[in-house]
Design a protein around this nucleic acid. Structure first.
Length: 451
RNA sequence: CGGGGCAUGGCGCAGCCUGGUAGCGCACCUGGUUUGGGACCAGGGGGUCGCAAGUUCGAAUCUUGCUGCCCCGACCA
Protein backbone atom coordinates (compact mmCIF):
# COMPACT_ATOMS: atom_id res chain seq x y z
CA UNK A 1 0.00 0.00 0.00
CA UNK A 2 1.25 3.40 -0.92
CA UNK A 3 0.67 5.87 1.86
CA UNK A 4 -0.39 8.49 -0.68
CA UNK A 5 -3.32 6.22 -1.59
CA UNK A 6 -4.17 5.17 1.94
CA UNK A 7 -6.41 6.69 4.58
CA UNK A 8 -4.34 7.16 7.69
CA UNK A 9 -5.52 10.23 9.59
CA UNK A 10 -2.89 10.55 12.30
CA UNK A 11 -2.93 13.15 15.04
CA UNK A 12 0.07 14.90 16.43
CA UNK A 13 -1.62 15.46 19.75
CA UNK A 14 -3.93 13.11 21.57
CA UNK A 15 -7.49 14.32 22.10
CA UNK A 16 -8.06 15.32 25.67
CA UNK A 17 -10.69 12.71 26.43
CA UNK A 18 -8.22 9.87 25.89
CA UNK A 19 -6.78 8.94 29.25
CA UNK A 20 -4.97 5.66 28.83
CA UNK A 21 -2.11 5.04 26.46
CA UNK A 22 -3.83 2.55 24.19
CA UNK A 23 -6.73 4.91 23.65
CA UNK A 24 -4.40 7.82 22.96
CA UNK A 25 -2.30 5.82 20.55
CA UNK A 26 -5.28 4.33 18.73
CA UNK A 27 -6.62 7.82 18.16
CA UNK A 28 -3.26 9.27 17.23
CA UNK A 29 -2.47 6.42 14.85
CA UNK A 30 -5.78 6.88 13.08
CA UNK A 31 -7.09 3.45 14.07
CA UNK A 32 -10.44 4.42 15.50
CA UNK A 33 -12.83 7.31 15.75
CA UNK A 34 -15.28 7.72 18.56
CA UNK A 35 -18.85 8.17 17.34
CA UNK A 36 -20.56 8.24 20.69
CA UNK A 37 -19.76 7.16 24.23
CA UNK A 38 -18.32 3.67 23.97
CA UNK A 39 -19.05 3.38 20.23
CA UNK A 40 -16.29 3.53 17.64
CA UNK A 41 -15.66 3.46 13.94
CA UNK A 42 -12.68 1.36 12.95
CA UNK A 43 -10.49 3.16 10.44
CA UNK A 44 -8.29 1.25 7.98
CA UNK A 45 -5.26 0.74 10.18
CA UNK A 46 -7.31 -0.29 13.19
CA UNK A 47 -9.51 -2.55 11.15
CA UNK A 48 -6.49 -4.31 9.71
CA UNK A 49 -5.24 -5.19 13.20
CA UNK A 50 -8.71 -6.16 14.38
CA UNK A 51 -9.08 -8.54 11.43
CA UNK A 52 -5.72 -10.14 12.14
CA UNK A 53 -6.61 -10.72 15.76
CA UNK A 54 -9.96 -12.11 14.70
CA UNK A 55 -8.33 -14.45 12.22
CA UNK A 56 -5.93 -15.92 14.75
CA UNK A 57 -8.81 -16.46 17.15
CA UNK A 58 -10.77 -18.12 14.35
CA UNK A 59 -7.94 -20.42 13.34
CA UNK A 60 -7.41 -21.63 16.87
CA UNK A 61 -11.10 -22.16 17.44
CA UNK A 62 -11.29 -24.22 14.29
CA UNK A 63 -8.22 -26.18 15.28
CA UNK A 64 -9.85 -27.04 18.59
CA UNK A 65 -12.89 -28.39 16.79
CA UNK A 66 -15.27 -25.46 17.10
CA UNK A 67 -17.43 -24.67 14.08
CA UNK A 68 -18.13 -21.13 12.97
CA UNK A 69 -21.62 -19.73 12.50
CA UNK A 70 -22.89 -16.16 12.43
CA UNK A 71 -25.84 -15.07 14.51
CA UNK A 72 -27.54 -11.69 14.21
CA UNK A 73 -26.88 -8.70 16.43
CA UNK A 74 -30.60 -8.12 16.93
CA UNK A 75 -32.52 -10.74 18.85
CA UNK A 76 -36.10 -11.33 19.87
CA UNK A 77 -37.00 -10.73 23.51
CA UNK A 78 -39.07 -13.91 23.54
CA UNK A 79 -35.96 -16.05 23.49
CA UNK A 80 -34.66 -14.27 26.55
CA UNK A 81 -37.95 -14.66 28.33
CA UNK A 82 -37.52 -18.42 28.00
CA UNK A 83 -34.29 -18.41 29.95
CA UNK A 84 -35.57 -15.83 32.37
CA UNK A 85 -32.78 -13.44 31.57
CA UNK A 86 -34.92 -10.82 29.84
CA UNK A 87 -35.91 -9.47 33.23
CA UNK A 88 -32.68 -10.35 35.00
CA UNK A 89 -30.23 -8.70 32.66
CA UNK A 90 -31.16 -5.18 33.63
CA UNK A 91 -30.28 -1.93 31.97
CA UNK A 92 -27.12 -3.23 30.40
CA UNK A 93 -29.31 -4.75 27.74
CA UNK A 94 -30.22 -2.38 24.96
CA UNK A 95 -33.90 -2.95 24.37
CA UNK A 96 -35.46 -2.02 21.06
CA UNK A 97 -39.02 -1.97 19.80
CA UNK A 98 -39.64 -2.59 16.13
CA UNK A 99 -42.43 -1.06 14.02
CA UNK A 100 -44.85 -3.77 15.05
CA UNK A 101 -44.19 -2.99 18.69
CA UNK A 102 -42.32 -6.26 19.13
CA UNK A 103 -39.74 -6.35 21.88
CA UNK A 104 -36.27 -6.79 20.44
CA UNK A 105 -32.80 -6.33 21.82
CA UNK A 106 -29.25 -5.81 20.66
CA UNK A 107 -27.54 -8.98 21.81
CA UNK A 108 -25.13 -8.67 24.74
CA UNK A 109 -24.32 -12.39 24.38
CA UNK A 110 -25.82 -15.39 22.64
CA UNK A 111 -26.47 -18.30 24.99
CA UNK A 112 -30.21 -18.23 24.32
CA UNK A 113 -29.91 -17.99 20.56
CA UNK A 114 -27.33 -20.70 20.20
CA UNK A 115 -29.38 -22.94 22.48
CA UNK A 116 -32.36 -22.31 20.25
CA UNK A 117 -30.36 -23.28 17.18
CA UNK A 118 -29.11 -26.38 18.92
CA UNK A 119 -32.51 -27.61 20.09
CA UNK A 120 -33.97 -27.03 16.65
CA UNK A 121 -31.67 -29.49 14.94
CA UNK A 122 -29.83 -31.76 17.31
CA UNK A 123 -31.64 -34.82 18.60
CA UNK A 124 -29.06 -37.50 19.27
CA UNK A 125 -26.06 -37.87 21.50
CA UNK A 126 -24.30 -39.16 18.41
CA UNK A 127 -24.11 -35.58 17.13
CA UNK A 128 -22.10 -34.60 20.19
CA UNK A 129 -19.75 -33.16 21.14
CA UNK A 130 -20.61 -29.95 19.35
CA UNK A 131 -19.06 -26.53 19.71
CA UNK A 132 -20.44 -23.59 17.73
CA UNK A 133 -18.97 -20.13 17.78
CA UNK A 134 -19.29 -16.83 16.06
CA UNK A 135 -17.44 -13.54 15.96
CA UNK A 136 -20.00 -10.80 16.14
CA UNK A 137 -20.58 -7.33 17.56
CA UNK A 138 -22.17 -7.20 20.94
CA UNK A 139 -23.73 -4.32 22.76
CA UNK A 140 -23.78 -3.85 26.49
CA UNK A 141 -25.10 -0.55 27.68
CA UNK A 142 -22.41 -0.08 30.28
CA UNK A 143 -23.12 2.52 32.90
CA UNK A 144 -19.74 3.94 32.28
CA UNK A 145 -17.94 3.09 29.07
CA UNK A 146 -14.32 4.23 29.15
CA UNK A 147 -10.79 3.72 27.96
CA UNK A 148 -11.65 3.66 24.27
CA UNK A 149 -12.34 0.22 22.85
CA UNK A 150 -11.01 -1.33 26.05
CA UNK A 151 -14.44 -0.93 27.54
CA UNK A 152 -16.77 0.15 24.81
CA UNK A 153 -20.49 -0.41 24.78
CA UNK A 154 -20.26 -1.96 21.36
CA UNK A 155 -17.48 -4.50 21.08
CA UNK A 156 -16.49 -7.45 18.98
CA UNK A 157 -16.65 -10.79 20.72
CA UNK A 158 -15.85 -14.32 19.76
CA UNK A 159 -18.25 -16.47 21.71
CA UNK A 160 -18.21 -20.23 21.51
CA UNK A 161 -20.74 -22.61 23.02
CA UNK A 162 -20.16 -26.26 23.74
CA UNK A 163 -22.83 -28.97 23.93
CA UNK A 164 -22.24 -32.35 25.49
CA UNK A 165 -24.19 -35.31 26.74
CA UNK A 166 -22.91 -35.30 30.27
CA UNK A 167 -20.83 -33.47 32.80
CA UNK A 168 -17.61 -35.34 32.07
CA UNK A 169 -17.77 -34.75 28.34
CA UNK A 170 -18.65 -31.13 28.96
CA UNK A 171 -15.64 -30.65 31.16
CA UNK A 172 -13.48 -32.16 28.43
CA UNK A 173 -14.92 -29.58 26.04
CA UNK A 174 -14.07 -26.86 28.54
CA UNK A 175 -10.49 -28.08 28.66
CA UNK A 176 -10.17 -28.02 24.89
CA UNK A 177 -11.19 -24.39 24.87
CA UNK A 178 -8.83 -23.68 27.73
CA UNK A 179 -5.95 -25.09 25.71
CA UNK A 180 -7.02 -23.31 22.54
CA UNK A 181 -6.93 -20.04 24.47
CA UNK A 182 -3.36 -20.68 25.54
CA UNK A 183 -2.45 -21.09 21.90
CA UNK A 184 -4.50 -18.13 20.77
CA UNK A 185 -2.84 -15.64 23.08
CA UNK A 186 0.56 -17.08 22.39
CA UNK A 187 0.04 -16.50 18.68
CA UNK A 188 -1.13 -12.99 19.45
CA UNK A 189 2.34 -12.44 20.84
CA UNK A 190 1.40 -11.80 24.44
CA UNK A 191 1.67 -13.54 27.76
CA UNK A 192 -1.80 -14.40 28.98
CA UNK A 193 -2.44 -16.12 32.26
CA UNK A 194 -5.52 -18.15 33.12
CA UNK A 195 -6.99 -17.39 36.51
CA UNK A 196 -9.75 -18.82 38.59
CA UNK A 197 -12.72 -16.57 38.14
CA UNK A 198 -16.04 -15.76 39.59
CA UNK A 199 -18.79 -17.19 37.45
CA UNK A 200 -20.86 -14.03 37.75
CA UNK A 201 -24.33 -13.63 36.27
CA UNK A 202 -23.76 -16.24 33.56
CA UNK A 203 -23.64 -18.84 36.28
CA UNK A 204 -21.92 -22.18 36.50
CA UNK A 205 -19.31 -23.79 38.64
CA UNK A 206 -16.09 -23.66 36.61
CA UNK A 207 -14.64 -20.55 35.13
CA UNK A 208 -11.35 -19.01 34.15
CA UNK A 209 -10.36 -15.57 33.03
CA UNK A 210 -7.41 -14.99 30.75
CA UNK A 211 -5.46 -11.85 31.45
CA UNK A 212 -2.86 -10.25 29.23
CA UNK A 213 -0.04 -8.94 31.35
CA UNK A 214 0.57 -5.22 30.89
CA UNK A 215 1.95 -2.68 33.32
CA UNK A 216 -1.03 -0.44 32.74
CA UNK A 217 -3.62 -3.20 33.17
CA UNK A 218 -6.77 -2.61 35.14
CA UNK A 219 -6.59 -5.65 37.36
CA UNK A 220 -3.99 -6.49 39.89
CA UNK A 221 -2.64 -9.97 39.36
CA UNK A 222 -1.07 -12.34 41.84
CA UNK A 223 0.53 -15.35 40.27
CA UNK A 224 3.26 -17.89 40.59
CA UNK A 225 6.39 -17.35 38.54
CA UNK A 226 5.90 -20.79 37.01
CA UNK A 227 3.44 -19.26 34.60
CA UNK A 228 6.38 -17.69 32.82
CA UNK A 229 7.83 -21.18 32.36
CA UNK A 230 4.90 -23.41 31.47
CA UNK A 231 5.21 -24.54 27.85
CA UNK A 232 2.49 -23.37 25.48
CA UNK A 233 1.08 -26.31 23.51
CA UNK A 234 2.24 -26.33 19.90
CA UNK A 235 0.24 -26.31 16.70
CA UNK A 236 0.32 -30.09 16.65
CA UNK A 237 -1.56 -30.49 19.91
CA UNK A 238 -4.07 -33.31 19.60
CA UNK A 239 -7.47 -32.06 20.68
CA UNK A 240 -8.81 -35.58 20.30
CA UNK A 241 -6.64 -36.79 23.16
CA UNK A 242 -8.65 -35.93 26.26
CA UNK A 243 -5.95 -37.16 28.62
CA UNK A 244 -3.29 -35.01 27.01
CA UNK A 245 -5.54 -31.94 26.93
CA UNK A 246 -6.47 -32.52 30.53
CA UNK A 247 -2.80 -32.75 31.49
CA UNK A 248 -2.06 -29.42 29.84
CA UNK A 249 -4.84 -27.72 31.71
CA UNK A 250 -3.78 -29.38 34.94
CA UNK A 251 -0.34 -27.93 34.55
CA UNK A 252 -1.62 -24.46 33.71
CA UNK A 253 -3.90 -24.49 36.73
CA UNK A 254 -1.42 -26.06 39.11
CA UNK A 255 0.04 -22.82 40.37
CA UNK A 256 -1.56 -19.92 42.15
CA UNK A 257 -3.04 -17.22 39.92
CA UNK A 258 -5.76 -14.85 41.01
CA UNK A 259 -6.83 -11.30 40.37
CA UNK A 260 -7.27 -8.96 43.30
CA UNK A 261 -10.98 -9.81 43.38
CA UNK A 262 -10.38 -13.48 44.04
CA UNK A 263 -7.08 -13.08 45.86
CA UNK A 264 -6.57 -15.27 48.91
CA UNK A 265 -3.80 -14.13 51.21
CA UNK A 266 -3.53 -17.49 52.96
CA UNK A 267 -2.93 -19.39 49.73
CA UNK A 268 -0.64 -16.62 48.49
CA UNK A 269 1.55 -17.04 51.54
CA UNK A 270 2.13 -20.65 50.51
CA UNK A 271 3.83 -19.46 47.33
CA UNK A 272 7.58 -19.13 47.88
CA UNK A 273 8.50 -15.46 48.00
CA UNK A 274 10.90 -15.82 45.09
CA UNK A 275 8.05 -17.09 42.93
CA UNK A 276 5.48 -14.48 43.94
CA UNK A 277 4.72 -12.40 40.91
CA UNK A 278 2.67 -9.29 41.41
CA UNK A 279 1.69 -7.79 38.09
CA UNK A 280 -1.11 -6.05 36.30
CA UNK A 281 -3.32 -7.50 33.64
CA UNK A 282 -6.22 -6.94 31.28
CA UNK A 283 -9.00 -9.45 31.03
CA UNK A 284 -9.37 -10.49 27.42
CA UNK A 285 -10.98 -13.90 27.67
CA UNK A 286 -13.41 -15.63 29.95
CA UNK A 287 -14.62 -19.21 29.82
CA UNK A 288 -17.48 -20.76 31.74
CA UNK A 289 -18.87 -24.19 32.35
CA UNK A 290 -22.47 -23.87 33.40
CA UNK A 291 -24.07 -27.29 32.90
CA UNK A 292 -27.75 -27.26 32.09
CA UNK A 293 -28.49 -23.71 33.14
CA UNK A 294 -29.92 -22.83 29.73
CA UNK A 295 -30.66 -26.24 28.27
CA UNK A 296 -33.12 -27.12 31.00
CA UNK A 297 -35.39 -24.06 30.80
CA UNK A 298 -35.10 -23.94 27.03
CA UNK A 299 -35.61 -27.63 26.41
CA UNK A 300 -32.33 -28.39 24.69
CA UNK A 301 -32.02 -32.14 25.03
CA UNK A 302 -30.75 -35.12 23.14
CA UNK A 303 -31.56 -38.78 23.25
CA UNK A 304 -28.77 -40.69 24.95
CA UNK A 305 -27.51 -44.21 24.40
CA UNK A 306 -29.99 -45.26 27.07
CA UNK A 307 -32.87 -44.17 24.86
CA UNK A 308 -33.83 -41.40 27.27
CA UNK A 309 -33.74 -37.62 26.83
CA UNK A 310 -30.95 -35.70 28.54
CA UNK A 311 -30.59 -31.97 29.00
CA UNK A 312 -27.30 -31.10 27.36
CA UNK A 313 -24.36 -29.74 29.33
CA UNK A 314 -23.02 -26.47 28.08
CA UNK A 315 -20.16 -24.06 28.40
CA UNK A 316 -19.44 -20.68 26.85
CA UNK A 317 -16.11 -19.22 25.86
CA UNK A 318 -15.48 -15.58 25.08
CA UNK A 319 -12.61 -13.55 23.71
CA UNK A 320 -12.98 -9.86 22.89
CA UNK A 321 -10.90 -9.12 19.80
CA UNK A 322 -11.63 -5.40 19.96
CA UNK A 323 -10.41 -5.27 23.52
CA UNK A 324 -7.44 -7.44 22.61
CA UNK A 325 -6.29 -4.78 20.14
CA UNK A 326 -6.18 -2.20 22.92
CA UNK A 327 -4.59 -4.66 25.32
CA UNK A 328 -1.82 -5.43 22.84
CA UNK A 329 -1.00 -1.73 22.75
CA UNK A 330 -1.02 -1.50 26.52
CA UNK A 331 1.40 -4.41 26.53
CA UNK A 332 3.55 -3.08 23.67
CA UNK A 333 4.38 0.59 23.29
CA UNK A 334 7.01 3.20 24.07
CA UNK A 335 7.15 6.97 24.06
CA UNK A 336 7.20 7.07 20.28
CA UNK A 337 4.17 4.89 19.75
CA UNK A 338 2.91 1.37 19.27
CA UNK A 339 5.06 -1.76 19.02
CA UNK A 340 2.97 -4.49 17.42
CA UNK A 341 3.63 -8.19 17.78
CA UNK A 342 4.61 -9.49 14.35
CA UNK A 343 1.48 -11.63 14.07
CA UNK A 344 -0.96 -8.73 14.19
CA UNK A 345 1.01 -5.76 12.88
CA UNK A 346 -1.08 -3.92 10.30
CA UNK A 347 1.85 -4.08 7.87
CA UNK A 348 5.12 -5.96 8.06
CA UNK A 349 7.37 -3.25 6.75
CA UNK A 350 7.25 0.51 6.46
CA UNK A 351 9.21 1.50 3.38
CA UNK A 352 10.43 5.03 3.89
CA UNK A 353 11.42 7.10 0.90
CA UNK A 354 13.52 9.91 2.32
CA UNK A 355 13.42 11.94 -0.86
CA UNK A 356 10.23 11.45 -2.80
CA UNK A 357 10.65 13.07 -6.16
CA UNK A 358 14.30 12.14 -6.47
CA UNK A 359 14.44 9.84 -9.46
CA UNK A 360 17.03 7.39 -8.19
CA UNK A 361 15.37 7.13 -4.78
CA UNK A 362 11.91 6.73 -6.24
CA UNK A 363 13.16 4.00 -8.56
CA UNK A 364 14.93 2.14 -5.79
CA UNK A 365 11.88 2.35 -3.53
CA UNK A 366 9.55 1.24 -6.29
CA UNK A 367 11.79 -1.71 -6.94
CA UNK A 368 12.01 -2.66 -3.27
CA UNK A 369 8.27 -2.31 -2.93
CA UNK A 370 7.68 -4.71 -5.81
CA UNK A 371 10.18 -7.23 -4.54
CA UNK A 372 8.87 -7.20 -0.99
CA UNK A 373 5.27 -7.44 -2.10
CA UNK A 374 6.13 -10.32 -4.41
CA UNK A 375 7.87 -12.04 -1.50
CA UNK A 376 4.68 -11.92 0.53
CA UNK A 377 5.36 -8.89 2.70
CA UNK A 378 2.60 -6.46 3.48
CA UNK A 379 4.35 -3.13 2.90
CA UNK A 380 3.26 0.38 3.69
CA UNK A 381 5.27 2.56 1.33
CA UNK A 382 5.63 6.13 2.53
CA UNK A 383 5.86 7.82 -0.84
CA UNK A 384 4.62 11.16 0.39
CA UNK A 385 6.74 14.29 0.09
CA UNK A 386 6.88 14.80 3.82
CA UNK A 387 10.22 15.36 5.46
CA UNK A 388 12.31 12.57 6.86
CA UNK A 389 11.56 13.41 10.49
CA UNK A 390 7.85 13.28 9.94
CA UNK A 391 8.10 9.94 8.20
CA UNK A 392 10.18 8.44 10.98
CA UNK A 393 7.76 9.71 13.58
CA UNK A 394 4.82 8.27 11.70
CA UNK A 395 6.49 4.90 11.28
CA UNK A 396 7.34 4.75 14.98
CA UNK A 397 3.82 5.79 15.91
CA UNK A 398 2.02 3.10 13.96
CA UNK A 399 4.53 0.53 15.14
CA UNK A 400 5.28 -1.66 12.11
CA UNK A 401 7.93 -4.28 12.95
CA UNK A 402 10.41 -2.96 10.39
CA UNK A 403 11.31 0.30 8.75
CA UNK A 404 13.24 0.11 5.52
CA UNK A 405 14.80 3.51 5.08
CA UNK A 406 15.91 4.55 1.64
CA UNK A 407 17.59 7.83 0.80
CA UNK A 408 19.92 9.25 -1.85
CA UNK A 409 22.84 9.36 0.54
CA UNK A 410 22.80 5.64 1.28
CA UNK A 411 21.88 4.68 -2.24
CA UNK A 412 25.05 6.34 -3.49
CA UNK A 413 26.85 3.51 -1.66
CA UNK A 414 24.26 0.93 -2.60
CA UNK A 415 22.99 0.90 0.97
CA UNK A 416 19.75 1.25 2.85
CA UNK A 417 18.90 1.24 6.52
CA UNK A 418 16.78 -1.32 8.27
CA UNK A 419 15.32 -0.39 11.63
CA UNK A 420 13.64 -2.84 13.92
CA UNK A 421 10.84 -1.09 15.76
CA UNK A 422 10.87 -3.25 18.88
CA UNK A 423 14.56 -2.89 19.65
CA UNK A 424 15.30 0.37 17.88
CA UNK A 425 18.28 -1.33 16.29
CA UNK A 426 19.34 0.16 12.96
CA UNK A 427 21.40 -1.70 10.42
CA UNK A 428 23.06 -0.26 7.36
CA UNK A 429 22.92 -2.91 4.68
CA UNK A 430 23.11 -3.39 0.98
CA UNK A 431 19.73 -3.68 -0.68
CA UNK A 432 20.06 -7.42 -1.06
CA UNK A 433 21.24 -7.90 2.50
CA UNK A 434 18.26 -5.93 3.75
CA UNK A 435 15.88 -8.08 1.75
CA UNK A 436 17.60 -11.18 3.08
CA UNK A 437 17.31 -9.98 6.66
CA UNK A 438 13.60 -9.39 6.18
CA UNK A 439 13.19 -12.81 4.64
CA UNK A 440 14.85 -14.34 7.68
CA UNK A 441 12.45 -12.50 9.93
CA UNK A 442 9.55 -13.62 7.80
CA UNK A 443 10.59 -17.23 8.26
CA UNK A 444 11.13 -16.79 11.98
CA UNK A 445 7.76 -15.14 12.34
CA UNK A 446 5.99 -17.87 10.42
CA UNK A 447 7.62 -20.46 12.64
CA UNK A 448 6.81 -18.56 15.80
CA UNK A 449 3.28 -17.35 15.08
CA UNK A 450 2.05 -19.44 12.18
CA UNK A 451 -0.98 -21.66 12.44
C1' C B 1 -26.43 5.01 39.51
C1' G B 2 -23.72 8.43 43.31
C1' G B 3 -19.56 12.22 43.17
C1' G B 4 -16.48 15.65 40.21
C1' G B 5 -15.03 18.16 35.66
C1' C B 6 -15.21 19.91 30.66
C1' A B 7 -17.77 21.92 26.08
C1' U B 8 -14.38 28.17 21.77
C1' G B 9 -12.19 26.15 13.32
C1' G B 10 -9.86 19.12 12.21
C1' C B 11 -6.45 18.52 17.02
C1' G B 12 -4.29 21.05 21.41
C1' C B 13 -5.39 25.51 23.97
C1' A B 14 -6.05 31.12 25.49
C1' G B 15 -10.01 34.64 26.06
C1' C B 16 -14.74 34.32 30.60
C1' C B 17 -13.33 36.59 36.88
C1' U B 18 -13.79 42.70 35.41
C1' G B 19 -19.85 41.91 28.93
C1' G B 20 -18.07 45.83 23.64
C1' U B 21 -18.85 41.33 18.32
C1' A B 22 -12.95 35.85 18.67
C1' G B 23 -7.25 34.70 19.10
C1' C B 24 -2.62 31.39 19.38
C1' G B 25 0.16 26.69 18.05
C1' C B 26 -0.34 22.52 14.94
C1' A B 27 -3.04 20.85 10.65
C1' C B 28 -5.15 22.62 5.73
C1' C B 29 -4.78 25.67 0.68
C1' U B 30 -1.46 28.84 -2.91
C1' G B 31 3.53 30.45 -4.36
C1' G B 32 8.69 30.17 -3.38
C1' U B 33 13.12 28.36 -0.94
C1' U B 34 14.16 23.63 1.16
C1' U B 35 14.70 18.19 2.20
C1' G B 36 18.81 11.96 6.46
C1' G B 37 14.81 12.70 13.01
C1' G B 38 8.16 16.51 13.08
C1' A B 39 11.77 23.09 7.85
C1' C B 40 11.48 28.42 6.51
C1' C B 41 9.32 32.89 4.10
C1' A B 42 5.03 35.25 2.03
C1' G B 43 -0.07 35.00 1.22
C1' G B 44 -4.93 32.51 2.21
C1' G B 45 -9.48 29.66 3.76
C1' G B 46 -12.21 27.80 7.79
C1' G B 47 -15.52 28.97 14.03
C1' U B 48 -23.74 31.85 14.43
C1' C B 49 -17.88 30.07 20.97
C1' G B 50 -22.68 22.53 22.55
C1' C B 51 -28.30 23.81 22.46
C1' A B 52 -32.35 26.84 24.36
C1' A B 53 -34.28 30.67 27.16
C1' G B 54 -33.26 34.96 30.22
C1' U B 55 -30.62 39.70 31.93
C1' U B 56 -28.53 43.84 28.97
C1' C B 57 -28.12 49.10 24.30
C1' G B 58 -24.77 44.90 23.63
C1' A B 59 -23.37 37.93 25.81
C1' A B 60 -17.98 33.23 24.18
C1' U B 61 -18.07 36.09 28.85
C1' C B 62 -23.50 36.90 33.65
C1' U B 63 -28.23 33.63 35.09
C1' U B 64 -31.38 29.25 34.42
C1' G B 65 -32.58 24.78 31.98
C1' C B 66 -31.17 20.97 28.66
C1' U B 67 -27.70 17.93 25.84
C1' G B 68 -23.06 15.70 24.91
C1' C B 69 -18.36 14.04 26.52
C1' C B 70 -14.54 12.79 30.20
C1' C B 71 -12.69 11.33 35.11
C1' C B 72 -13.31 8.75 40.31
C1' G B 73 -16.35 4.73 42.77
C1' A B 74 -20.03 -0.15 42.40
C1' C B 75 -20.32 -3.95 37.45
C1' C B 76 -18.19 -6.34 32.73
C1' A B 77 -15.07 -9.54 26.79
Amino acid sequence: MRLSNYFLPVLKEAPREAEIVSHQLMLRAGMIRQQSAGIYSWLPLGLKVLRKVEQIVREEQNRAGAVEVLMPTIQSADLWRESGRYDDYGKEMLRITDRHERDMLFGPTNEEMITDIFRSYVRSYKDLPLNLYHIQWKFRDEVRPRFGVMRGREFLMKDAYSFDLDEAASRAAYKRMFVSYLRTFDRLGVKAIPMRADTGPIGGDLSHEFLILADTGESEVFCHGDFMRFPVPGAGVDYGDDAKISAIMDEWTSAYARTDEMHDEALWDDVPAADQMNARGIEVGHIFHFGTKYSTPMGAKVTGPDGKDHDVFMGSYGIGPSRVVAALIEAGHDDAGIIWPASVAPFDVGLINLRSGDEATDTACGDLYSKLTAAGFDVLYDDTDNRAGGKFALADLIGLPWQLIVGPRGLANGEVELKERATGERLTLTLDAALNRLAEWQAETAARFGG
